[in-house]
Amino acid sequence: MEKRERLAISRPREGACGNTGTWRVFRPVVDKERCNACGMCAMYCPDGVINDEYEIDLVFCKGCGICAAECPKKAITMVREGNTTGT
């Protein structure tokens, strides 16, 4: 029997909802000097875009700013998108 589209069964794929990084107005910028790798940012990130090295995946980061708000070292700042100076 030919293969048919019987019902809406979706398969897991990275980027299933598009590159949500484009939603961002503010971008998190990590000050590696200040970071003590406590893991709070990764734990609190709703979208899990912060990896074990505490690098933020900007393709997907929506720029909510929770990481910056929760970073005990104030090592993350939110910078307006388009501002390349990082300040």
């Binding site: 809406a8 069964i9 979706s10 398969r11 897991p12 794929r13 990275e14 980027g15 299933a16 909802c17």
Partner: peptide, 8 residues
């Protein structure tokens, strides 16, 4: 979750 045929 996303739109068929993909899900996150």
């Amino acid at each position: 979750q996303g739109v068929w045929p993909n899900t996150s």
